[in-house]
Amino acid sequence: MKNSVVTNNSMVTSKWKGFLETFMSNKMGFSGAIILGIFVLIAIFGPLLTQYDPKEYGVAEVLSSPSLQHLLGTDDLGRDVLGGVLLGARISITVGFLATLISMIIGTVVGIASGYYGGKVDTLLMRFTDVFLVLPWLPLALVLTAILGASIWNIIFVIGLTSWPGTARIVRSQTLSVKERQFIERARAIGADNLYIMRKHILPNVFPLIFANTILVSAVAILSETTLSFLGMGDTTQPSWGMMLHYAFESGAASLGAYWYLISPGICVVLVVLGFTFIGYAFDEILNPRLKRR
């Protein structure tokens, strides 16, 4: 068993090395990584550069245009928009990553169990997955958020709970292929139990696909948080980009010509999603031989 594990681990390591080398040579993926890297740095260090307090207002003229004192102007309560954007980066990206983590865990467990066991287990788990696939996402998320309450943690839970079915389907299809390979048969022959095989053999071989799908789900999670917050279901105490757009819309910033209030968080959402999309496209091109450029 040890020799089988060592051989399998070396194969996985070799795959990852080749994967990273190919990714670094992909211009679109590299550009996406730079965009996301910049926003991650903003999320980590940005709030340290501002004294922005979401509960403090009236410190400046409301909806004042960009100036040297306020580079991105002020909002409808006289707060610095740049400070809100910097702090909003941390909130929005954190929500996106944590919601994606929940989604990936649920989708991976369901997908691997369904594909590996097959039979009645597969049928039951896939029908359960289909229920979430056919339900309209937005009404379901709005209802769950209204029931649980508008808070950051509830939004993370709701997005993670409603965005896993696609991952489960993808992981299941890959598991069906991996479980038929010879090293799985060898592991069974020497007495390895099902949980060991799924943890040590199936998961490492489907993980690159899970990782690639995680990138796309992260973009969806950030867009989902922005959508829920814009519709008034976000946490009013946390200045996420979605909440900034919500307040900008409520204050009539568009009709008042306060373009900086709308454009600033909007551009941030677009750039982050674009970065994830670039990386996701690069991963799809690497993992799908038919899309590889010659």
Rank of each mutant, 00 (worst) to 15 (best):
V206N: 02
S151Q: 07
K200G: 05
I202P: 04
Y247S: 08
L231V: 15
P208E: 13
I202M: 14
A146F: 11
P265S: 09
F211T: 10
V178H: 08
L216Q: 07
S255E: 04
V217E: 04
P208A: 03
A187V: 08
R181L: 15
T162V: 15
I156Y: 02
V220Q: 11
L203A: 09
T162H: 11
S218P: 00
T226I: 00
W153Y: 14
G232S: 09
A258V: 09
S224P: 03
I202K: 03
N213M: 10
S251D: 05
F207Y: 05
P136M: 04
L216F: 11
P136C: 03
K179Y: 07
F132M: 01
K179L: 10
I159L: 10
Y196G: 06
I170G: 07
F157H: 04
F128A: 14
D130Y: 01
L262F: 00
Y261G: 03
S264H: 07
S151V: 10
V217G: 06
V178W: 12
I197T: 09
L138R: 06
W164A: 08
S224Y: 01
A248G: 14
W137H: 08
A221I: 07
F207D: 00
G160F: 02
W260G: 05
F211E: 01
T237P: 07
I155V: 15
R169E: 04
L228C: 02
F230Y: 15
S224H: 00
A253C: 13
A189T: 15
G166D: 11
L176G: 12
W153F: 11
S251A: 15
F249R: 13
R169H: 07
L262R: 03
A254L: 15
G160V: 01
T236W: 03
Q182N: 12
F230N: 02
V217S: 12
F128D: 01
W164D: 11
I152M: 14
T226L: 02
L142T: 11
E225L: 02
S151A: 12
E185A: 13
